[in-house]
Nucleic acid binder design. Structure first.
Lengths: 345, 345
DNA sequence: CTGAAAGCGCTTACAG
DNA sequence: CTGAAAGCGCTTACAG
């Protein structure tokens, strides 16, 4: 009772043809006369037959499934990540693809990594998308080397342009420049920076872009004012709290590597009795869904995650379907959004 | 190069045993001597072998995959739905399960529904979870009748307690009672209600609970003050805007069937020049992530979606793994959260 | 304890 | 245009 108990051999018998012909009809082979095709189709419809998926895969057919792998040490309660997941599913579904998702708590967990790799090796998916990966994550590189198609968010490897590699980024340089220009325009000279995860591509990239943008105004970056963090609200909070206790001089502004970190920093600042923007200005990056809602509304750099994910998903699918595709990289633009968290000094 | 080119027959040859034995080792059969087991395991490790997934499924093994099907006419941009998806993935991943997701734009789209059903019939998944389904959605009932395990959010069918049916709800009666009691306690007598999707279980259920709670205070529900809607912000907005133009008397409070609808209603009220809570009080249901952030912060009934989803996912997996499980239903509690959108009259 | 063989349900050269 | 047969890679009674 728990199986679709009719198979191609039954269909063939009822239609009075061979399984070969049934298969040809299903797979739209051109060399089937219209009359035969219709006769077979009628039987297929009548019995609600659809070919067994696993059996088809074993013959090397596509799975119409894209893998989505989230690399995240903590439970995923971040609205932004949730939205990214939704966007992948949305984009893939609209193209008739299923999405097979799994969370990788740690890339050091060999069993989970193994399961994820098997997903490719065993052809459960046609290609995969990775969110939260370190730049140059070895097991992903291994998959790419094996020829599997992989789409990676926030990744950059100089010179790696395999046709089965699809990557996407934002224009961090442009974004950081706009943010720093704006702060400098407000009169800020002493600007702290909360850095992102050094292992992720955009961590060092935003940091470097920040330094370049400062240098363009002939401003120095005070090493005591560069805080470590990892893109999470929690670490933004902890890092800022610790830093506030350790320093004597305060900058007039803080540029956080992203909005989540800015949320954490804001909380730490408030707890230390500092008001934003009256006592200190705070700038984020990403334009998180909540950024316009918090108190004070966060001035930030807007990037378009939905568009990026849609592009990435689309290109992964296109690459899967047409192996002659070339290396693809998407770089989303960035734009300053002025709200209430920065003020003139 | 694109396949895991070693198979059980090769492993068997190298280890000097038969494929049968390799299979027994992999599947932890008890009747394999320790020495043999280790010999085989070593070869498996060395070659990074893992059995082909499709081939295993064809022999009737489990897939360790749960389906997640979202029934939603529009693109999913709702934070709450995103969070639900994340929770399913989180819960399933923590139990070693993959999640196969697909969006169903319309249950009238026979091709998509067919693809979803095939997902069960072809054993691509061990069981499925449905979000956004109408109460008594025929194709889901068909799957349950066939013996597949299905977990359904927001569903209730009197007397349907098949062991492979898993459902979850919130205590709408309790929630509505608390909300109405609170409003009445603030002096409100004239309370409008924005109803949810009549096809979904909690639509009529919340409506009825509202009426019961009103009746308990001997209050009548004015039929002109019952607005249709479908749980979406858009419909909350449209319905409220239209209603405001059509009526002469205003109630002193509006109870929305959920927070999204309340957001829409709030916008319509503001556009009509009405202030919440000064001119009219507004109460939501669900405690949406944004409810504490909006202006004014929304008074609402809090339910715990994460816990509900985790429970549902867990029970679906347990039912899949142990067919002797009985019918399971989860009813989450509901609790009043007082914020700023309701005032005394 | 272990191997040979059947069986799962397809697709696709191959031969006609 | 179409069928018989091989092959995909497993698992699991069956027989020993």
């Amino acid at each position: 009772m728990r199986k679709n108990d009719i198979n191609s051999i039954e269909i063939a018998r009822i239609a009075g043809v061979s399984r070969s012909t049934v298969s040809r009809v299903i797979n739209n082979y051109p060399n089937v006369p219209q009359a035969t095709r219709e006769k077979v189709m009628q039987v297929i419809e009548r019995y609600g037959y659809s070919p067994n998926f696993s059996a088809r895969i074993m013959t090397g057919m596509k799975t119409l499934t894209i893998g989505l792998f989230l690399i995240s040490p903590e439970a995923i309660h971040d609205t932004l990540t949730h939205a990214l997941i939704g966007d992948v599913i949305e984009s893939a579904s609209s193209r008739g693809y299923y999405v097979l998702t799994h969370i990788i708590r740690s890339t050091g967990d060999t069993e989970t990594v193994r399961k994820v790799k098997d997903t490719f090796y065993q052809r459960r998916i046609d290609g995969g998308i990775f969110i939260g990966a370190a730049n140059h994550e070895p097991f992903i590189e291994e998959l790419i080397a094996k020829g599997f198609v992989a789409g990676i968010v926030d990744q950059h490897l100089e010179g790696r342009i395999e046709p089965n590699r699809v990557i996407c980024n934002f224009d961090n340089k442009l974004g950081m420049k706009q943010g720093v220009d704006y702060l400098v325009g407000l009169g800020h000279r002493n600007i702290a920076f909360i850095a992102g995860d050094p292992l992720r591509c955009s961590g060092p990239e935003r940091m470097e872009a920040f330094q370049d943008a400062m240098a363009a105004h002939a401003l120095k970056v005070n090493p005591d004012w560069v805080l470590p963090s990892d893109f999470s609200e929690r670490s933004g909070y902890q890092s800022t709290a610790r830093w506030l206790q350790s320093i004597s001089d305060l900058p007039t502004a803080i540029f956080a590597c992203n909005d989540s970190v800015a949320f954490g920093a804001l909380r730490a600042l408030n707890e230390a009795g500092l008001r934003v923007p009256d006592d200190i200005s705070l700038m984020g990056f990403d334009d998180h869904l909540l950024s316009s809602r918090i108190q004070p509304a966060l001035t930030t750099i807007r990037v378009n995650f939905s568009e990026m994910i849609d592009m990435l998903t689309r290109q992964v699918i296109e690459t899967v379907e047409d192996e002659t595709q070339m290396f693809k990289k998407y770089v989303g633009t960035a734009e300053l959004v002025i709200r209430d968290s920065c003020r003139k000094v």
